[in-house]
Amino acid sequence: MTEGRVIPDAASLPATRDAGLRRRPSAVGGAFRLRAALPRPWGAVIAVASSIAILALWEFVARLGLTTPLFFPAPSEILAAMGRMFSTQHLAWHAWVSTLRVWGAFLLAAVMAIPIGMAMSGFRPVGAALEPAIDFIRYLPVPALVPLSIIWFGVGEETKIFLLWLGTFFQLVLLVADDMRRVPNEYFETAYTIGASQAQALKDVAFRAMLPSLIDNLRITLGWCWTYLIIAEIVAADSGLGFVIWAARRYMKTPEVMAGVVLIGVIGLATDQLLRAIHRRAFRYL
């Protein structure tokens, strides 16, 4: 074992060294030192391997007949169901409809939250005026507002967009205000002393300074949109992934229910990875 080789080394180290750092770590042990770096390909390798392991275990358990297919179908069955749904049930179209709803509501929330959040943190009176209302609405559970939303907007697209917007705007606006609050005063003052107006300081300095954390918050908020989407589509819809899942449930087609859920997860994962990649490229200076 490596232990045998390491001990003489450790003995020759000065006695003042911290005992915890004394033993030279082996490759595996070293990776579990608190906050130790992980060499480049290993993160991806571990992520893929663990995903495959979980799926394999699941498949194995299902095939052994340890679970009832009605409640817990095997991954292969879910995949087959998904294939069927793509070819006969217009699954791609439903996914597209859902994606449009999510992005529509998300962009609407973002376009409103960014200026309002910046104004709330930049101008004290605006913050004082809006914070109580926003904080109140933020804690209202979206599902509880479904009936109200239907009374207001009927059962069309407006209701769905409204519910998604409701779930994200009020959270996002406070996150934006926080991002803006963290912009150092020195940045503003530097801008002023080279002749910037308030508007220029906001646009060229504050917005730019908060952009990396803003994009991160948008990415997280986009994930929430998908959560609320299902609520909106289950209540009143004849299209979208939420509708597909809910319709499959009625006939106890568990593989199809799971296929719908899995597809949402896949779309979410892909979008998130894409946004992360863009983030890394756009903010190389971080």
Partner: peptide, 10 residues
Amino acid sequence: VFQSYSSFPW
């Protein structure tokens, strides 16, 4: 010229 945050990181 400030002590900290004296240049823009982006």
